[in-house]
Design a protein around this nucleic acid. Structure first.
Length: 568
RNA sequence: CGGGGCGUGGCGCAGUCCGGUAGCGCACUGCACUGGGGGUGCAGAGGUCACAGGUUCAAAUCCUGUCGCCCCGACCA
């Protein structure tokens, strides 16, 4: 491609809207253009990078035994009523009516469609297993898109679905996808780690995220200092510190005027926060639930949601708290009736707690679980934080930020049971198909790559996903001799199989260098009167400050050597 | 959905408080020069000042409403 003919222009300044690095650079370099909040067009350069990513994903999916399919973006809402997600999916489904007034939706993901596809074709165990995938547009009307391509509303996702007859098979299919994911991210030049994750609105029990650790990420990851334990904060566990359990004392009420928080209470009594029982009130499906956790820990709402069976808990409003007859600042589960009680297991690791007296200005001493209050649900709902002990007993947890670029789920029978996707076993029984699903955000992957591969001058892309392999800059092109040689270089680079962007524009050299840096093309080749005076052609890696001059005949070898030396 | 901010040529901004000829830098067009890190000069073109209504002799500027965009929070396969 010749720069003089390339559609799209580089910008000296990024639009004021762009906040993070990838958004700024992708916009400045002419890769993307925003159309509306969270909705982008790809210009030729951006489209080339995306195409390369897509092809890497395809190759690895196929290599892992996946079969490419294509499912519709527009679907009847009734399909989603089968799975029960029509009204519960977050964010709410984008919907419209077709001309026959039939309710249609724009798909935010394709579990239902994939399940329907399998249901329509699978009848016997002999038809299993298989894995299908597509690279397809989704739409999620996110409440708050942000960060350019990092979190958008319309986006392209590679989504794969595995179908197996039994658990072992599902595990095998899952592992095959995990292997493919590792290869994909590595080939894209991304140092991605796999962490334990919550399966959220997709469902199923086990799920793992693939995360690129970077400060600009919006996920918090906790990892052990001494083992390979790593998990999203939503899922992360830890070993709770036990407090000594002594003889249970008598419950005793005492005045605590003006004390409203655990911090104040612990301070006033001169004890550690682990000697207090904190009560937090949540509204779940219109009902107020009392949650009790040891004062030194905070509630992880994702864990709470899972214990409550999937309904989204929200902190109760002051009005709801009041209406339930509770005294904010002096509340506890002691003596509360007609209200569901959830208790974190940290409470069982101590005794004689300080807790609210449910009376303005009073608290209780020597409150004990089971004797003074009970749990309808007892479990782990504590949020892991840095410094806590790793759940495997090895090392402490540290916290990092990361971008989720992929997510894999063992769905089991979540969809097949609801949608009736069954098969006949060898024994003639009817069983539900066990599924897995596996997603990669294609555009987010590009944004993540830029977030982790850039410098002050622009992107520094690995060859695998750069729009071009080589940026050929011809200077002094009004010299017919140099222009002719530049054309020859262009031809020979193309003949050697490289993707080449030939900057043949009649502009100042500085502009060409700036553009070459901004676009992140991994290799730069310069021909000019100066380079010729110095003995030939200049070859330079984007990632390096140093360039070298090589004879014209050696140019291809020098370029190839740059690629061979890089890790990708 | 709550809080904050911003809408003025393609991009970045000033002008708005205090109403009176729409301005600057970059980019763009032509010519000349220059020719290794966004170069120089001369001459140009391009704007319903987000939209609608109101106040006024007069509105980018004041008032009301609407829309759009960004950030923080809530939320988030």
């Amino acid at each position: 491609m010749r720069s003089s003919q390339l559609f799209g222009k580089t910008l000296r300044q990024a639009p004021a809207d762009a906040e993070n690095v990838s958004h700024k650079l992708l916009t400045r370099a002419g890769f993307i253009q925003q159309i509306a909040t969270g909705i982008f067009s790809l210009q030729p350069l951006g489209n080339r990078s995306i195409t390369k990513i897509r092809n890497i994903i395809r190759e690895e999916m196929d290599r892992a035994g996946g079969q490419e399919i294509n499912m519709p973006v527009v679907q009847p809402r009734s399909l989603w009523e089968e799975s029960g997600r029509a009204d519960t999916f977050v964010p709410p489904l984008a919907r419209f009516e077709d001309r026959r007034e039939r309710e249609m939706i724009i798909a935010p993901t394709h579990e239902e469609t994939a399940t329907a596809m399998a249901r329509g074709s699978v009848t016997s165990y002999r038809d299993l297993p298989f894995t299908i995938y597509q690279i397809q547009t989704k739409f999620r009307d996110e409440t708050r898109p942000r960060g350019g391509l990092l979190r958008v509303r319309e986006f392209e996702m590679k989504d794969a679905y595995s179908f197996d007859a039994d658990e072992e098979g599902m595990d095998r299919s899952f592992q095959a996808m995990v292997g493919a994911y590792k290869r994909i991210f590595k080939r894209c030049g991304l140092d991605v780690i796999m962490v334990d994750a919550d399966s959220g609105g997709i469902g199923g029990k086990d799920s793992n995220e693939f995360v690129l650790l970077t400060e600009s990420g919006e996920d918090t990851i906790l990892m052990s200092t001494e083992s390979d334990y790593a998990a999203n904060v939503e899922k992360a566990e830890f070993i709770k510190k036990a407090s000594p359990i002594g003889d249970l004392g008598e419950v005793e009420e005492f005045a605590t005027p003006g004390i409203k928080t655990i911090d104040e209470l612990a301070k006033a009594e001169g004890v550690s926060k682990s000697k207090t029982a904190k009560a937090v009130f949540y509204s779940v499906d219109g009902e107020v639930v009392v949650v009790t956790i040891r004062g030194d820990y905070d509630v992880n709402e994702t864990k709470l949601r899972n214990l409550l069976g999937g309904s989204e808990p929200r902190l109760a409003t002051p009005e709801e708290v009041k209406a339930a007859g509770l005294v904010a600042g002096s509340a506890s589960a002691v003596g509360l009736k007609g209200m569901r009680s959830v208790v974190d297991d940290s409470i069982t690791m101590g005794s004689n707690y300080l807790a609210g007296a449910n009376k303005e200005g009073f608290h209780l001493r020597n409150v004990n679980f089971e004797r003074d209050f009970k749990a309808d649900i007892l479990g782990d709902i504590a949020e892991a934080k840095k410094g806590y002990l790793s759940p495997d007993g090895k090392g402490k947890l540290i916290a990092k930020r990361g971008i989720e670029v992929g997510h894999v789920f063992k769905l089991g029978n979540v969809y097949s049971s609801k949608m009736g996707a069954e098969f006949t076993t060898e024994d003639g029984d009817q069983n539900e198909i066990l599924m897995g699903c596996y997603g990669i955000g294609v555009g987010r992957l590009l944004a993540a790559a830029v977030e982790s591969n850039h410098d002050d001058f622009g992107m520094v892309l690995p060859r695998a996903i750069a729009p071009y392999d080589v940026y050929l800059a011809g200077l002094n092109l009004n010299d017919a001799d140099i222009a002719g040689k530049a054309e020859q270089l262009y031809e020979s680079l193309l003949d050697a199989g490289y993707d080449v962007l030939f900057d043949d524009r009649d502009i100042a050299p500085g502009v060409k260098f700036k553009d070459a840096d901004l676009l992140g093309v991994p290799a730069r080749v310069v021909i000019s009167s100066r380079s010729l005076d110095n003995g030939g052609i200049e070859v330079k890696a984007r990632s390096s400050k140093d360039s070298q001059i090589v004879a014209e005949a050696d140019m291809i070898d020098a370029v190839q050597k740059l690629f061979d030396e890089s890790t990708e």
